[in-house]
Design a protein around this nucleic acid. Sequence first.
DNA 1: CGATGACCAAATGAGCTTATCTGGTCATTC
DNA 2: GAATGACCAGATAAGCTCATTTGGTCATCG
Lengths: 257, 257
Amino acid sequence: MPSPDTEPRAGRGAPPGPGREERAHRILNAAAELILRWGYDKTTIDDIARAAGVAKGTIYLHWKSREALFAALLRRDRVAMLEQVRAGLAADPGGATPRSLFRHLALAVMTRPLMKASLLSDAEVLGKLIRNKPTVQTAAAMRSLSEVYLGALREHGAVRTDLSAVEQVNVITGTMYGFFMITPRMPEDHRLSGEHLAELLADTLHRALDAGRPLTPDQTAEATGAALAFLDEALRVARERLGLSLTTTDLGEDYRQ
Amino acid sequence: MPSPDTEPRAGRGAPPGPGREERAHRILNAAAELILRWGYDKTTIDDIARAAGVAKGTIYLHWKSREALFAALLRRDRVAMLEQVRAGLAADPGGATPRSLFRHLALAVMTRPLMKASLLSDAEVLGKLIRNKPTVQTAAAMRSLSEVYLGALREHGAVRTDLSAVEQVNVITGTMYGFFMITPRMPEDHRLSGEHLAELLADTLHRALDAGRPLTPDQTAEATGAALAFLDEALRVARERLGLSLTTTDLGEDYRQ
DNA sequence: CGATGACCAAATGAGCTTATCTGGTCATTC
DNA sequence: GAATGACCAGATAAGCTCATTTGGTCATCG
């Protein structure tokens, strides 16, 4: 027979510690599936509760409102994305070059429908989350990432400096946005996989930013350091925000991702 | 006093020949302004007639339906855009290099709100024109342009061939889309002018496609020929379609641009 | 005979009513 | 005291009516 405490039954006390978190994730998983299938506007708390196998009230033991739940969902996706980028980057044998960062970043975004929807402000998926809320912060955060990181690269001559930082931010942002949005707009026989597009995007940005001469070992080290440092910082912030979203502790009114 | 036939007065017979065309353009100008201000859905024939200073019935002497009018409007914009590109390209002292083509193309699109709206499927502007009609063809046409032109470039070694044509089409399309859509998404202090963005886009695509060694005079000539040949062909088709849209002759049911 | 604008059917939209749904609560249960 | 789900007020949707607007026509005018 199953051990009595691993499977919380209806009405029975469920683990207040680690099991709680697992349940939170189960709920978020259900929410993720539903929002992608039906969109934010048509995804109800009842649906989520049913799909997650909990009662509606339970959801309100985790988040104080529907909006807070979806904020948690997006924040979780962001953390997972950054973790994926961080891991891929650290494992890259060629070092954490800009090219490698762009490739992993692109791939991580492209394989995350919620992330993509949020970056592109896809009203189909995010519905009123888009229209009501001032600005989804992810884009700003990504730009800020570009900026700090770019600054370091420029300082060490790891990218060309005949373009201004602002120009380069525009190039990076523009190119990435474009690659993120083309897939559905391409005819089937021209459609490339996420990996394929990520590689192409990395190549495009590499060439757009490249200083011309190969990086010295020093520069590679600096670039690697800058990339990892900033990803760590981004992760720290993202994890902190996610942490706020996974406790019942009052969030105030700030539900932005 | 003014000559009696240059200014058609209300109720008076107006020129059936050249004046007719001028009037058509006046109507289209009014329509353009209104659709950009209010969007397709909220722009009425009455509004257009009033703004153009003609009676409603007159509009139906030019087009058999509201939809046909807007088709003409978009087609006209397309022809004007291609003409601008063609002229800019031919005048470029460096020859009609791919880089020059991309720059003029980007600039022509960016300075044409309707073109941009149509390429990006901006529902805000195009309203039901988007939702109802199968596919706005402009995007497909642009891709087809890329394709034929690219083929020629590849054949003559004017671009790298370690990427497949399909990959390059994705790079070109993706990058252009991205640059077209970033302007409103950038914070004011990062916003660049259309010219500036066009230059950056051209540079990005140039680097993304460049074969590495500078073009020989022969290759430059070939590239120039290919660019102008295709633009001419695109213009021919676009003008033909526009011609159909500017005569009362029944269009059939095909109102796609 | 080109241009007009009164005219009409159809579409759209505002306003209202009614019915259903949904976010959020909380007394009850185990 | 954690989890539940019946419960409620407010939101949303569906259905309907009625008034206005709109695309499109055509008798009339100059």
